[in-house]
Design a protein around this nucleic acid. Structure first.
Lengths: 235, 235
DNA sequence: CGGACTATTGAGACTCCTCAACTAACGTGG
DNA sequence: CCACGTTAGTTGAGGAGTCTCAATAGTCCG
């Protein structure tokens, strides 16, 4: 179910604190059109670099549709995926005028692009909008904390299970127990701090014990929800 | 060098994006007094719980002086330290009206405490202040990303070295190469996702190879800056 | 000075990583 | 439509590193 009218980007933001309903917060129509008025659309094919770490950070992006990965390449040649972004997620974190990470599309994506200077000006004039962004970044912070929890785990099966659970919660709810996994095993491994072989083995192991079933390379189905949750929570 | 006059809390915030100088941003005097007017002071001794995970999140805190740890206790009995907060850092992240983590003092601390409802109201009225908070949370996000990088590393010595480097950069610059480490080995281990034995072994190993020297339990000195940086960066 | 806690050090078990070979899937071009 | 080549993913064997368990040493505080 997609908005029939393109009213501009929406921000899936969690509250900054209590006193506000803990639900996905969408921008008001006025705010949506306000952002739309300062944003440009961008359509990109899969596996396309959006920007590279260290380049001049001129814009902030909001995902309208599709999936992208935020990553950093290390001197050793290893790659750390810092986060995956889906619809309504924001990316473009900068420091000292430079992007801190590289970003690449996974699927075909549609992005909203806002120049940083423009956004800053707008936010300084509109406290409500700034507050929304504050909520959004807070939401990102929560995601990062969860990522840390996942990576700090020692067992590969547990990490992979938490990852699948995260993907499921990030997606819109569905009645079946199918979880879409658009990224490659390699991307997942780089996110989880595992080797790609370990990810593969963990998935195989979960499938062998009938906790999940692999449905092609980019989807899995949860067969035993109880054990699935137990493994995920068994930190 | 400390403010002779208590003008209220300051926020050590990095810019949200480019176009703003990448320096520590302090609130304007007006903003400081504005926050001071809605905040209360709090003095706490070491090892005191500030709040527990899951309790009603009524306030947000700013550290004026001292060090605290933000952590989560896992079902297994293990403890994950999510972050350490020092002067000018903010904590009190909530979701659904409940604190997501527990917070405990490490040293004796002075805190500013602001009721969330009050803060929200204030932020919605003052775009500049909201923007400052946005910068602050963005800064926290960067810290969390760095934490993830550290934890994802495989070698204990490397993780500990990055941790020391982080502590050094967090503190105010000093001419000698002494790094204060107020937290226990156990807290550091819980932050790094290592056993406390591994932390101890890593520190001993670094000391044995003359990269650092241990100066009591709560400080170390960097002896060989070149190797120190090399180990830290050798991801 | 004694006691409790924190930190260090040692030995064995376990898990994941690396290297390597193999299989499956996808897309392209004939 | 199929054959082929390239890429992605799976599976196996051995090695490196940390965790656990256990004992010892050092510190802080009463």
């Amino acid at each position: 179910m997609v908005d029939p009218v393109d009213a501009g980007p929406s921000l899936r933001a969690a509250p900054f604190g209590p006193g506000i309903k803990d639900v996905v917060q969408l921008l008001s129509p006025r705010q949506r059109s306000q952002i739309a008025s300062i944003a440009t659309h961008l359509h990109l094919p899969p596996q396309r670099i959006v920007y590279r770490e260290g380049t001049s950070a001129h814009s902030v992006f909001i995902v309208a549709d599709g999936a992208v990965k935020t990553f950093r390449d290390l001197p050793s040649g290893k790659r750390r995926v810092m986060a995956f972004q889906f619809a309504d997620d924001v990316f473009g974190l900068a420091q000292g005028g430079q992007y801190m990470n590289s970003v690449q599309t996974i699927t075909a994506v549609t992005l909203y692009r806002v120049r940083v200077a423009t956004l800053s000006d707008t936010l300084r004039r509109d406290a409500d909008l700034a507050f929304q962004f504050l909520c959004k970044v807070t939401h990102e912070l929560r995601g990062s904390l969860r990522h840390t929890i996942i990576v700090a785990r020692r067992d590969a099966v547990g990490r992979v299970t938490m990852f699948l659970r995260m993907l499921e919660q990030n997606a819109r709810p569905r009645h079946d127990s199918r979880i879409e996994m658009p990224m490659s095993r390699s991307d997942a491994a780089d996110y989880l701090g595992l080797s790609l072989e370990s990810v593969s083995r963990a998935l195989s192991s979960l499938a062998r014990s009938r906790v999940i079933a692999l449905e092609g390379r980019h989807a899995i189905r949860v067969l035993d929800r109880t054990r699935f949750e137990r493994i995920s929570a068994a930190l």
